[in-house]
Design a protein around this nucleic acid. Structure first.
Length: 773
DNA sequence: CTGTCGCGCGTTTTT
DNA sequence: CGCGCGACAG
């Protein structure tokens, strides 16, 4: 077996995981332990053994990136037809499934996919139509409620109604569902829920897929939500003899806030009767001190499955800790350190600046910008989310499916063609209750608005006619021209960038068609020619000849395929991706990445751990896992930095260093600034200097490297005599610790952590706080 | 129908 | 402080 080239370089743990028998398995894969390698080698090994054919494999990931990487690595390992396998994201695979069984799923063949923004605007329309008070029924929250319910597997009728407010929200949910059904659109959660329900309710179909997939592999299992786990059980239920291979790391579960259930891992182990959990603890990424820090930190969490990373690489450099006096100073210090690293030969793209929340990037960005250092910020608008691109896509979607009211409303008057709010209202009134789409109802509006509407419909019809049979590129070019988008942006002052993005859309379409055929999200081939089609509870089991859905495995139009691609893969967020630039991102978006040098900035109480997560232990443990993720991104060098003051929401906050420092082993740390530092000494004058400089950037660094000249003034000594980090007593809440002090005089406020009484903001002019000790 | 002003708000995010 | 949205005026 050792001679097998596939298995040759695996360590014993990896080898054990890869060659497990075909039964349910749980792999606890630590950070940097070769998880993706194990997953892909497992598939390759199964194929090589002749145990399965490509068609029998399903591998599920969360991101397109992970899915792509799996396919790339797999085809490098074996000369295998990756297309034959079901490798993709949860949503991508659902799409594939629903495109094949659209009829059974009760969808139109050309159903469109709503992204989060589309969903929000659809909900807004409902709220308006139902005449609800948007203060009480906030569209964003409703949107969240609907997606959340679906991800719990709940249809409107299933949602427990406790009060009037919930009842109303369920009503909105129902109306939203009706609207989507009418328009032939599905949101992300709907892709999952529809697939789940169809499999649940259709015995032969379920049996078919369970038979087909002898092996199902799930990546990042700790991030699955309730619906995704239930979905998995439809494809491969416990006790069914299929090889279910779940890979995850409970210590890297950082998406609880969006419904991920770490508990799914323990549930999986129990329900699937996993005999042996394989732990991958050998780390190939980081040096010892970094791993010591990570291990020690995460050991403070209870409720773990238990895992300790180790390395053969030796201790390496200590983790460097730096205290700055202000966020400006922190940024300046980071900047100087980066320049030094780069001069020392480290590529800029090997340096990552991580922060807990996006708002923190601004200061660092301006420091880098002023110094002329190339950087790239992750997050923010992605390509397919840009307004001009969404406008273009809306036209394309209307060509495919004119009943998509969301797209209709987006572009009916863009570019402006004399269709105002009044006309739209009339149109919506006309459509309401008839079960018809806006597009179908334009005839009902008379007058000038009506003829303008007719003009718009004519435009869409003309586009559909004239682009029939053309290539995707030609379709888009026609549309851009005929709809007047290019002309519109040509007259705009800021329009040049937008025109470039529209041209980029043409390129993206071209690349999509040539590279991927129609791409993996599309159904270019019969998905499953043997899948049973017609079915209802009392129908006899159908033969393979009566499979209306499978017949639709005909080549889907390139346009439809591209639209699906655009919805399921929002694309990159920056054009200049290839350049050697310092990488700026939140800790969340850093998950799965690695860098030679990593700076974790803003290591302060209230920021990291974030104040909103301090009230319960679950929240704090997730923050700690987040910190664990951050630490384990670093290969060679890790910096932790915190600042005494920070500008947030236009106010200066006085922070204490993160409690996580107390959870790190002293031997692995090196304090570049003195570890204990009192307040009120150096920082006041430095802070003032930063302000006087206007831009705020100068030689401000940590207290160890302070410029001379001390006119100590700002900020002036607070009259209440309290300081951050001080213990105080409150008559009602008992003893607590001051975390933040803000404002002066009558406005002075303190944020105090009262332990089990929680975190409180107190106005010092009102609250009686007595210093303890 | 467009542009501008002013208000309110402000973890983390993929599909 | 800076953004995005909604209300209102031109």
């Amino acid at each position: 077996m050792q001679d097998d080239p596939l298995l040759r370089n695996l360590n014993p743990e990896q080898l054990a995981a890869v060659t497990l028998p075909a039964q349910p398995a749980l792999i606890l894969a630590g950070a940097g332990s070769g998880k993706t390698r194990v997953l892909t080698t497992r598939i390759a090994w199964l194929l090589q053994q002749g145990a399965i054919t490509p068609g029998g494999v399903m591998a599920v990931t969360f991101t397109n990136k992970a899915a792509k990487e799996m396919m790339t690595r797999l085809s490098a390992m074996l000369p295998v037809n990756v297309r034959g396998m079901w490798i993709g994201t949860f949503h991508g695979l659902c799409n594939r499934f629903l495109r094949a069984h659209w009829k059974l799923a009760g969808l139109p063949q050309s159903f469109q996919i709503l992204d989060t923004a589309d969903q929000l605007s659809a909900v807004k329309r409902i709220v308006k139509a139902m005449n609800l008070d948007e203060e009480r029924y906030v569209p964003k929250q409703l949107s969240w409620f609907i997606a959340g319910s679906k991800e719990e597997g709940l249809r409107p009728r299933d949602v427990p109604v406790r009060d009037e407010h919930t009842r109303k929200m369920v009503e909105v949910y129902q109306a939203y569902e009706d609207q989507c059904q009418r328009e032939g659109v599905v949101d992300f959660a709907e892709l999952m829920l529809r697939t789940y329900e169809l499999l649940r309710d259709n015995d032969p179909l379920r049996a078919h897929y369970q038979h087909r997939f002898s092996h199902v592999l799930v990546d990042e299992f700790q991030d699955t939500n309730r619906l995704q786990y239930a979905w998995l059980k439809m494809f491969a239920p416990p006790g069914n003899g299929q090889g279910v291979f779940a890979v995850g790391d409970d210590d890297q579960s950082i998406y609880g806030f969006r419904g991920a259930l770490v508990g799914n891992m323990a549930d999986f182990e129990r329900e699937y009767r996993v005999e042996r959990v394989v732990k991958l603890e050998q780390n190939y990424r980081s040096f010892g001190n970094i791993l010591d820090a990570a291990n020690a930190l995460i050991a403070h969490n209870s409720r773990r499955l238990g895992k300790n990373l180790r390395t053969d690489a030796g201790p390496g450099e200590p983790v460097r800790v730096v205290e700055s006096t202000s966020d400006f100073g922190e940024a300046q210090w980071v900047l100087e350190e980066i320049q030094q690293l780069h001069r020392g030969g480290l590529a800029r793209k090997e340096i990552a600046l991580l922060y807990r929340s996006n708002a923190q990037s601004r200061v660092i960005e301006s420091a880098l910008f002023n110094a002329g250092i190339p950087y790239r910020v992750y997050g923010g608008l992605r390509f397919f989310e840009r307004a001009e691109v969404k406008h273009a896509l809306a036209y394309l979607r209307l060509i495919e499916n004119p009943n998509d009211d969301t797209s209709f409303l987006r572009v009916v008057n863009f570019p402006a063609r004399g269709i105002g709010a009044r006309t739209i209202e009339q149109l919506q009134d006309a459509a309401r209750g008839t079960g018809r789409s806006l597009y179908q109802s334009v005839g009902a509006v008379a007058g000038k608005g009506g003829s303008n509407l007719a003009g718009f419909v004519g435009l869409v019809e003309r586009l559909r006619e004239r682009t029939r049979g053309l290539t995707l590129r030609e379709i888009i070019e026609h549309m851009l021209h005929d709809a007047g988008l290019i002309d519109f942006y040509r007259t705009e002052k800021e329009g040049q960038d937008r025109i470039e993005n529209l041209e980029e859309l043409v390129n993206a379409a071209e690349a999509f068609v040539t590279q991927e055929g129609f791409g993996k999200d599309a159904v270019a081939l019969p998905v499953d020619e043997h899948a049973p089609g017609t079915l209802s509870g009392d129908a006899p089991a159908p033969g393979p000849d009566l499979t209306p859905d499978a017949e639709t495995g005909e080549i889907v139009s390139p346009l439809a395929a591209f639209l699906t691609h655009a919805a399921l893969e929002a694309g990159d967020n920056q054009a200049q991706a290839g350049q050697d630039a310092v990488q700026l991102m939140t800790v969340h978006s850093a998950k799965g990445l690695e860098f030679d040098a990593v700076f974790i900035t803003g290591m302060e109480e209230g920021l990291f751990p974030h104040e909103n997560a301090l009230s319960d232990s679950d929240g704090l443990e997730e923050e700690r896992r987040l910190m664990y993720v951050a630490i384990t991104r670093a290969r060679q060098r890790l910096y932790l930095s915190f600042s005494q003051t920070r500008m947030l929401h236009g106010q200066t906050r006085y922070n204490v260093k993160s409690r996580f420092f107390d959870e790190l082993p002293e031997h692995a740390l090196k304090w570049l600034t003195p570890k204990q530092q009192g307040f009120g000494s150096g920082f006041a004058r430095e802070y003032q200097q930063a302000w006087q400089r206007g831009s705020g950037f100068g030689s401000m660094v940590g207290a160890g490297r302070v410029a001379p000249a001390p006119p100590p003034l700002v900020p002036k000594a607070p009259s209440h005599g309290l300081r951050v980090g001080q213990s105080v007593f409150h008559t009602k809440f008992g003893e607590g610790l001051i975390l933040t002090l803000e404002g002066q005089g009558d406005d002075a406020r303190a944020q105090v952590n009262f332990g089990r009484h929680g975190m409180k903001w107190l106005a010092l002019s009102v609250a009686k706080l007595t210093p303890v000790d």
